[in-house]
Amino acid sequence: MTLKSFNDKHDNDYHWAMVIDLDCCDGCGACTIACQAENNVPTVGEERAYDKRTMSWLRIERYFEGEWPNLRVVFLPMLCQQCDKAPCEPVCPVFATYHNPEGLNVMVYNRCIGTRFCGNNCPFGVRKFNWFKNRWEEPLEQQLNPDISVREKGVMEKCTFCMQRIRRGKDHAKDEGREVRDGEIIPACAQTCPTKAITFGNIRDSKSKVAELAKSKRRHHLLEEHGLETHVIYLKGGE
C-alpha cells in the first residue's frame, strides 16, 4: 500500500486550523508548559536557554509598545503556522518535512538528517533543532508521553498541532463510524489555556467554531506578505 492510496480515502475531509484570540491572551505561559509535557519537549536548563537553544514548540513572544512609563506589554503565542505553502517543505532534501492531505505540515523525525535548511527558510523561527542528546532526570522520564517519540540529537522538530491527539480522535470517530465532531480534538495548548484564547478545529467544516471565528473582522495572519497561507489565525481588535 503506498501512501497515496491511503491518503485518497481521507482527502479533503479535514483541514486543521487554529484561532488564537490575542485579546484574550494574558501571556500566562500555561500553553507552553502543556505543550512541553504533551510532546516530550525536553527542558534544556538555564545555560542553554540563555544560548537560545530552548526547545519549546510553542512560546509566548513578549513585545513592548510605547516608551516608559506609558508602556504596554503585548503577547504573541508563536507556534508552527502550518502554512499551506510552507517554505520549509520544498527545501528538505530527504522529505523529512512534507505536507499531508489534511493541510498539516508534518515532520518525520526518523527521516531527518539535520541539514537545517527548513529552519533557515522558516520566517517565524519556530523550528527547533536538537543540539544535544536530551536527558530526563529521574523520575521525569516516567511522565514521557508514549504516543510520541523522543527525538534523537541532530533532528529538527516543531509543533504538530498535537498529531497524536488528532490521530486518536480520528480513530475514535472511525470506530463509531462517523466524522470527527467539532471540539472533539483539542491540542494540549488549547486544553490548558485558562482564558480560552486558543480554538482548534476543522476549518473545512463551515459550522465549526474555528470557521466561525475565522470570519471575524479582527482576523489576521502573521507575515502575510510572504503569501504562505498560514493556518494559525490571530484575532486582534481594539485596545
Partner: peptide, 8 residues
C-alpha cells in the same frame, strides 16, 4: 517512490 505532498 511517490509521496503525496498535499496536492503539489
Amino acid at each position: 517512490m511517490n509521496l503525496d505532498v498535499g496536492g503539489k
